[in-house]
Design a protein around this nucleic acid. Structure first.
Lengths: 109, 109
DNA sequence: GCTTCATATCAGGCTAGACTGATGTATACT
DNA sequence: AGTATACATCAGTCTAGCCTGATATGAAGC
């Protein structure tokens, strides 16, 4: 496996990692239906403020959400293209799994 | 957030977690094009045998792959429905992100 | 200007999980 | 039967990342 291959898989793995935490996935699900401010997310998830803030930071730094500050409040919105890229590659994988031939390569390393 | 909601997000998050490791994602990608035995995966990824075996176990226990033993060799095949379920929910999230209204809920907790 | 509220950051503890060397268990070959 | 090969499991180490209490920042309102 080349270094480039590792890096590509690594970057995408990191994006899947965004959805690999229950609370973070829940936040993404909530933001998928509407723009919300931090206080809503704290309220809806029942998690502590610092914990929600921690996960929002991770999503922010990965480019999965953008923020708009209005007065005291910070509104979070999902950036569609990150999720779209993941959805596309996942659909591709699922299609591949469906078609993956039953023929086996010779096995003599 | 109800306990049920947490559990649902938790289960799906665990599935996304399968793809959140670079090596494991690479293994899934390789299996998406054809059925392979462990020795191929070790060869293609360049990882140690125990490490590959570790990740295959995780994929196996999550139901993401099935195995066929042929003599000394163990062949691994992706089970499409796990990836399909993830692809579907991710597409749904991405669509939601696209349509997510700009209207903001009143913010007065 | 002082207080309050919304949110972010920091520092520390704790746990899950990734990697590895050693070892176990079949199966195949001679 | 004995050896070699393919693969799994075990035990231990180490790191990444989650959670939390304390604290900082910055806007609003009085």
């Amino acid at each position: 496996m080349t270094t480039a291959t590792i890096n590509i898989s690594g970057e995408r793995a990191a994006l899947f990692g965004l959805l690999a935490d229950p609370l973070r996935l829940r936040i993404v699900e909530l933001l998928a239906s509407e723009e919300l401010c931090t206080c809503h997310l704290i309220d809806e998830t029942g998690a502590k403020q610092t914990t929600v803030s921690h996960h929002l930071r991770i999503l922010r730094e990965a480019g999965a959400v953008t923020t708009t500050e209005v007065g005291k409040f910070t509104w979070y919105r999902l950036t569609p293209h990150v999720l779209e890229a993941l959805a596309a590659s996942l659909t591709e994988l699922a299609d591949g799994a469906e078609r993956a031939g039953r023929q086996r390569l010779p096995c003599a390393p």
